[in-house]
Amino acid sequence: MSEGDIIPPLSDTEQNEDFDDEVDEEELITAQKVLEIVETAWKNELCAPEILQHQTDMLELMLGQVAHMEENMKDLDKNDFRFIVHQMELERIRYVMASYLRCRLQKIETYTRHILNEEETREVAEKRLSPEEFKYAQEFAENVEQYFQQVALQYMPNMQRAEAEQRIVRPNLMSHVFIKANVDVPSVVVGVDDEEVDLTAGSQHIIPYQLVSDLIYKNQAQLI
């Protein structure tokens, strides 16, 4: 994807005016950087067995950016070559965002109970789901439970009902993933016998997810 030329009709100063309610750090971020972050988040999410940290802020910035670009493009000549290129780029960005959110929903629907239980133990800043996703997950869990009750569970003998615990679906965190190190990471513990490996920047590995999940979280490595 040619991120370089996605947002020429817009300078950084204009962008800052749009988002001056964001914190300082984010005001300085360029549209291209936002796109990079969203794309990385998308790739990580697609490859990771569990649900990752939500990226609502970045996504909102990106959405704002897309709306802005659409606005700017209204003035362009439809037959201009640049118009077609920009339009295509917009379609791609929209696909990435939709695909990213869809992927998260899919995980939420599959591991609903597990994710909700985990969220309860997390601090506010550590929450993996955005408030909207959390609401969705709760509604979904309730909906499925109600359906099971209506169709089957209510007709079963007493003892069989209180076993919702057994029905929790959990992701397999030890499934293998491909990763690429973004920076040098010394002595990563791999395997049960405390074997250690140094990852060099740019190197690629195949490894059980759980052993490197914190590297993904700290953005020292990404899933590919």
């Binding site: 909102e60 959405l63 709306a67 379609e91 696909y95 939709a98 959110l101 869809r102 909207e132 996703e133």
Partner: peptide
């Protein structure tokens, strides 16, 4: 209602854009 609430009320239709363009 989830799709409507994404991005501070801007909303995205997630059922579109199913394949890479």
């Amino acid at each position: 209602s989830y799709m409507r609430s994404i991005g501070d009320g801007q909303g995205i239709d997630l059922t579109g854009d199913l394949r890479p363009p």
